[in-house]
Amino acid sequence: MVDLPKITLADKNAVLEALSGHPAVKAILGWNPAALTDARFDRGELTLTIVPAEIRAACLAVQAAGYNFFEDMTAVDWFPQSPRFQLSYHILSHAFKERIRLRVLLDEPDPSIDTITTVWPSANYYEREVFDLFGVRFEGHPNLRRILLPDDWQGHPLRKDYPVEGYR
């Protein structure tokens, strides 16, 4: 198991210093330190912000470091802030019994990012869900179609500028 401090570290350098022995931090720094734009440790959870173009390689790096299980992926819409979309990937390690969060920030007008279905095929449905409800495109996805809503639905309901009651 990984030993984790009980404090909040909001600063990237502070996180890298305090968690220098953490397997995920080591993996990312050993792979490409320039791709890591921010790091945060809060409430026992490590969040690493990755450059959007490098997400697939970052997943491969943490996968090789022992974070073997893709648990969850979703988006947050920070409208009207810029960059608007945040993607959160939750990756679990069965061996370390620990979870990390990889975070990517995307901006309009055409939010798109590489698919990670080549790393974890289980990301397939999750990426389709984010495409369906947020309108984020995943390049190279094998079957990027709406999953929960009908194919002819207009708009992406989980965007913040989409009214809760829908358009009538």
């Binding site: 809060d42 409430r43 959870e45 969040t47 648990e71 969850d72 979703t74 947050v76 959160s88 939750h90 979870r99 969060r101």
Partner: peptide, 17 residues
């Protein structure tokens, strides 16, 4: 802030973000 919490339900690993 943001948190992710997972529990084991009858069907498997459930998580709330």
């Amino acid at each position: 802030g943001e948190v992710y919490q997972s529990i084991e339900t009858g069907h498997g690993l459930t998580g709330y973000y």
